[in-house]
């Protein structure tokens, strides 16, 4: 408090210099990321709050079990682990780009930035595939008609519907099957592995019901709707960060190429872009944790 005591404090805080030995831009970037961490934190904690307010929540291993080109094979977590590794590796290439910047090695910066951009785009591609697969996926669920009768409906994972409820017991599913529409039955028969050469459409309702192999279809009840909203909302928000990170990296790449940083005599901008990119990776650690693992 007194002028006398401040003299004895560490010289870092005495003014005229940064107490952290950092330029303001990096400081702002750090505090911006902290602020952004609260945005993501709020999303994920809201998700947790809603999840805890439900009696049932789908097991992520059941939801995320597809792999491009693998058809209906049950491969839980396989695809998302690839996405995770892509992001980790792109983080590593970013570290190398920043390091090359320290050494004012223009070629190194450009090379590693390019790889980081490739990683980012690959991640976005994976995410696009996953979203597409979930939205267009066709899953048989129990639905209730206005008159109270249960039937089987075919839905995808959307903001307003979730096909990943509890497994329906056999008897309920059987009753619902009998109440289902002709189209639904045709779909289920095909799902049961029976080749359709146009002959199925002519079959009677009962015939079709008989051909459906219920035990292979895993008919479920509808799950909590909030699941889809949070999944698309949060991974979308993360994907938006990845996207903007890629844009930033492309700008950095072009600026390095034009020799802007070379003329400035330092590559500090790359460091800030790097911080942002690592933050994107950091957020993914928690998105991965909250949606895919627990």
């Amino acid at each position: 408090m007194s002028t006398q005591t401040t003299v004895h404090q560490t010289k870092w805080w005495s003014g005229g210099k940064s107490p952290f030995n950092l330029e303001y831009g990096k400081l702002m970037m750090w505090y911006f990321l902290m602020s952004d961490a609260f945005t993501f934190g709020a999303f994920l904690i809201s998700y947790g709050s809603i999840r805890f307010s439900q009696n049932f929540w789908p097991d992520p291993n059941v939801v995320f079990n597809a792999f491009p080109g693998a058809g209906h094979a049950n491969l839980p977590l396989a695809f998302v682990s690839i996405m995770t590794f892509i992001l980790i590796i792109s983080s590593v290439t970013m570290v190398l780009a920043v390091h090359a910047g320290h050494k004012e090695d223009k070629k190194g910066v450009i090379k590693w930035l390019a790889w980081t951009i490739v990683g980012g785009l690959a991640f976005l591609g994976c995410q696009a595939w996953e979203w597409h697969h979930l939205i267009t996926g066709e899953h048989a669920v129990l639905a209730t008609a206005a008159d109270g009768k249960q039937y089987i409906d075919i839905i995808g994972q959307t903001m307003g519907g979730n096909p990943w409820g509890q497994l329906a017991d056999h008897n309920t599913a059987m009753v619902a099957l009998n109440n289902s529409s002709h189209e639904t039955l045709l779909h289920l028969v095909r799902e049961s592995g029976i080749k359709d050469n146009g002959q199925l459409a002519g079959l009677s309702h009962e015939k079709l019901v008989g051909m459906v192999q219920l035990e292979h279809l895993h008919i479920r009840e509808k799950g909590p709707i909030a699941f889809g909203g949070y999944f698309y909302g949060i991974t979308g928000f993360h994907g938006f960060h990845v996207f903007s990170g890629v844009i930033i990296n492309i700008i950095m790449l072009l600026m390095s190429q034009k020799g802007v940083f070379e003329r400035r005599g330092h590559y500090l901008m790359i460091e800030k872009a790097g911080l942002y990119w690592h933050f994107v990776d950091l957020v993914w650690v928690f998105v991965f944790l909250c949606f895919y693992l627990i």
């Binding site: 505090y31 902290m34 602020s35 952004d36 609260f38 945005t39 934190g41 709020a42 999303f43 809201s46 809603i50 903001m159 307003g160 709707i225 909030a226 889809g228 909203g229 949070y230 909302g233 928000f237």
Partner: peptide, 25 residues
């Protein structure tokens, strides 16, 4: 401001989704 406004932003985004995209947050 830096630590609390982003939480309002999250809340507002979810509300926008509820209003316009049919979610149930």
């Amino acid at each position: 401001g830096v630590l609390s406004f982003p939480v309002l932003l999250s809340g507002a985004i979810l509300l926008l989704f509820d209003r316009n995209l049919g979610t149930s947050f």
